[in-house]
Amino acid sequence: MVSAMRERAILVRDLRMSYGPVEAVRGISFEVDKGEVFGLLGPNGAGKTSTVEILEGYRRRTGGEASVLGFDPAARPRELRQQIGIVTQEGGFYPRATVREGVELAGLPYPSPRDPGETLELVGLADRGEVRVQDLSGGQRRRLDLALALVGDPGLVFLDEPTTGFDPAARRAAWEVVRKLAELGKTVLLTTHYLEEAQALCDRVAIVKDGLVVAEGPPGSLGPGTAGYRVSWRENGSRVEHLTDDPTEFLNRVTGEALADGRTLEELQVSRPSLEDVYLDLTEEAAR
């Protein structure tokens, strides 16, 4: 029994946070198991960063419960900080340090840091170790950001919008790193507003909108859900679309009517709505 129990890395229940009168997080709940890659997916302003910064210990919640590796993140115990890695996306580099010096400095306060050279290897900066941080390209800085979060060999890594502003090559490289983290058995909490990123990387996703979780589950399960099937065809030059939960009955009826009228249903298609449709539906619904 015990061995079958999954160990929990993060527990968030009815989390709330306000900036003055603005309530950015309005009762978010989710759980992340150890070794899982969990995504908070949602449009800008949904409350993703606020949620992550509460878990990182940067911000204080105004309500609800939060536990990270068994600790209250608001207390910011050093023992917790030694076990998490934070990708800030806000720079925070000494411009005149070399890449290696920066990584070495960041590794000092961890009980068993990863070797700096190995860390640079992991993020693809092995040949940039002697370069000053100020001379790095934008993409290389993002890799350094990752290196600084990983040098302590943390079990849990927070990545807030790890690929926003990346070109496709840089994005693929960042995805590789996240996959590598998953392979190494790390727990990852990432936020993104790119649906395909959540689909590509996450074991489970919570879709966040206006400070609330509007759907949660493995990316695959969010796809069809209750939205059923989409049947569409071309008629008089424009596309006609119907959603149905019983495509057999529906097709039988519309094709029967078309045959009786002597019409053809051009480009007839039956499809499952993509996660993208679900994402748009959910986030639009919540906006209404």
Partner: peptide, 11 residues
């Protein structure tokens, strides 16, 4: 430039 914030989040 966010160095203090990074230190704050580190051990």
């Amino acid at each position: 430039n966010g160095i203090l914030k990074r230190v704050q989040g580190s051990p």
